[in-house]
Design a protein around this nucleic acid. Structure first.
Lengths: 110, 110
DNA sequence: CTAATATACAACCATATGGTTGTAGGACGT
DNA sequence: ACGTCCTACAACCATATGGTTGTATATTAG
């Protein structure tokens, strides 16, 4: 995944409406128009939010008759979590190194 | 945590330079000027990136003489992970419900 | 066929973002 | 005391974002 891809994932998550859409779409796919009824904004605005989520691969659309059903892509969601976890791992590694240094120091005779 | 706070966390994460700063600062605190040497942009630009991370509570600054040491705030990082995990949990709940429904259906006599 | 529904997309607007340069102040070395 | 280093912040610019309204197209209902 390209860096701009990662940018898009977090960028897409940085909006309350879009996070709410993700939550609804992960429980059961909803059409864009059904989704839009939950928010106090125009249909076009919600459509744009879905487009942002889609560009980030956080949702996919499945056409059903005249409506588009929005589904959350759990794989991308997990990818975002994994990325954050990597930072924690960096930190844990540092702790391990420090521990190792301390162990060696303690173990070595003066 | 307020919703705008969550917005700020993900917003702050939606930039490669800022994610890199987080990675460096979690391993060992670096001053703003030392950080800025790693990137092909002005000191002021890096300073702004640090400010964005600070506003999102993803880093804190500790003054040491004339420099400011940037430290990653692991608590906020974990909070972001927890938020993402909540979406997964929503989905797992749905699966559990479906499983339960199926179990009841199977268990009930025709 | 016609009307209503669901979507797509363009044009527009205000504000935010990510970069720049420039100015100014506090801390350190000599 | 002086120059240098580190930081802070303002002003500016181009582009992106989040919203609007309006228009166009496809699908379904009757």
């Amino acid at each position: 995944m390209t860096e701009v891809g990662v940018d898009r994932i977090f960028q897409a998550l940085a909006d309350q409406t879009r996070r709410d859409i993700l939550g609804r779409a992960i429980q059961s796919g909803e059409s864009v128009s059904v989704l839009s009824r939950h928010y106090e904004m125009s249909f076009a605005a919600v459509q744009k939010h879905v487009a942002v989520l889609e560009r980030a691969a956080l949702v996919t659309k499945e056409r059903r008759g005249r409506e588009q059903i929005v589904h959350t892509n759990r794989t991308t969601l997990r990818r975002a979590m994994t990325l954050l976890d990597a930072y924690e791992q960096l930190w844990i590694q540092r702790i391990d190194q420090i521990t190792e240094i301390l162990t060696i120091t303690e173990g070595e005779p003066k």
